[in-house]
């Protein structure tokens, strides 16, 4: 579907993108994570054909992408980070305008606009100027415009920035539904939980380079992350610590006055055995808590920065 091959883009002395490569398969949602200035937007601009790469290549369904390459652009739907809508135009007029530029017309356009308005929940407000919409409604209109021509690759550049929780959830559900229908999605975000929820694979970008790539679990394994398990309770905690320390999944166990803290591989699988052994060793458990390493920690490990820096 999308092939990005060692693309490089320079602005004067600054190399904004330095040899990034990745691919996206049909129906796959790929997350591009990186701090501000990492090169995400420049990468997206090259994929969407807004900028030409100094070297390397971007292909969508085999079509070369670039500012003057028209054929490849038919396959993509770009949802820019900024609200790319015209406030003076009504919601339906915005969709009609961009739909016509995508080559739609007549009955096909009218039908498709109705469908997308329904999909993004704006049918009732389609006749109002976009400038009268709430922030969430504008975001939904922004996304809807990118869907009009049924693109095979949807590019979403931080689509939930500044959106209320309700609209945000609606947007995430829409993306999940589109992915379920076979649309490939390239998604950038500052919100780790969005990446974890939506993305099949994630690429971490920093200083213009792809630092790591893989599924969530693959990325966590990359930094050797262990799950943390906390067993709160009373009784013979020292004996329980000895018993649990002998299990293959347990790397480390510490007892304190209120319970046990363990470093464990694959905690969801091991937790039942841990509870059984602790109870057998004479501990009365009051609470069990599992903390798994997340992408935030991976990100911090790889880039030395928090995602929102």
């Amino acid at each position: 579907m999308l092939e990005v091959e060692a693309v490089v883009r320079r602005f004067g002395d600054l190399t904004a993108v330095d040899g990034i490569s990745f691919e996206i398969a049909p129906g796959e949602t790929y997350g591009l994570l990186g701090p501000n200035g990492a090169g995400k937007t420049t990468t997206i601009s090259m994929i969407a054909g807004l900028l030409a790469a100094d070297s390397g290549a971007v292909r969508v369904l085999g079509e070369q992408m670039g500012p003057s390459r028209v054929a490849g652009k038919r396959h993509i739907g770009l949802v820019p980070q900024d609200l790319a809508i015209y406030p003076e135009l009504k919601g339906r007029e915005n969709m009609n305008f961009f739909g016509r530029l995508q080559g739609l017309g007549g009955k096909e356009l009218a039908t498709r606009v109705d469908e997308v308005l329904d999909l993004v929940g704006l049918t009732d407000r389609a006749g109002d100027p976009a400038k009268e919409y709430s922030g969430g409604m504008k975001r939904r209109l922004n996304i809807g415009i990118g869907l009009l021509h049924r693109p095979t690759l949807l590019i979403l550049d931080e689509p939930t920035v500044g959106v209320d929780p309700q609209s945000r959830n609606a947007i995430l559900e829409s993306v999940e539904a589109l992915s379920g229908e076979g649309m490939a999605v390239l998604y950038t975000t500052h919100y780790m939980e969005e990446a974890e929820r939506l993305c099949d694979r994630i690429g971490i970008v920093d200083s213009g380079q792809l630092q790591a790539e893989g599924t969530r679990d693959e990325l966590i394994r990359l930094i050797g992350g262990l799950d943390r398990v906390r067993l709160d309770g009373s009784g013979d905690l020292a004996a329980a610590a000895d018993a649990l320390g002998g299990l293959a999944a347990v790397e480390q166990v510490d007892a304190d006055r209120t319970g046990l803290s363990l470093a464990v591989r694959d905690a969801p699988t091991a937790v039942a055995e841990l509870v059984t052994r602790a109870t057998a060793a004479g501990v009365t458990l009051a609470d069990v808590e599992i903390t798994r390493p997340n992408l935030e920690q991976v990100f911090l490990h790889l880039t030395g920065k928090a995602l929102r820096d």
Binding site: L50, P80, L101
Partner: peptide, 15 residues
């Protein structure tokens, strides 16, 4: 500045 130019440039037409 408003972002609509990027969307226009992503449309299947010559810039």
């Amino acid at each position: 500045q408003e972002g609509t130019l990027a969307r226009l440039q992503s449309m299947p037409m010559r810039p």
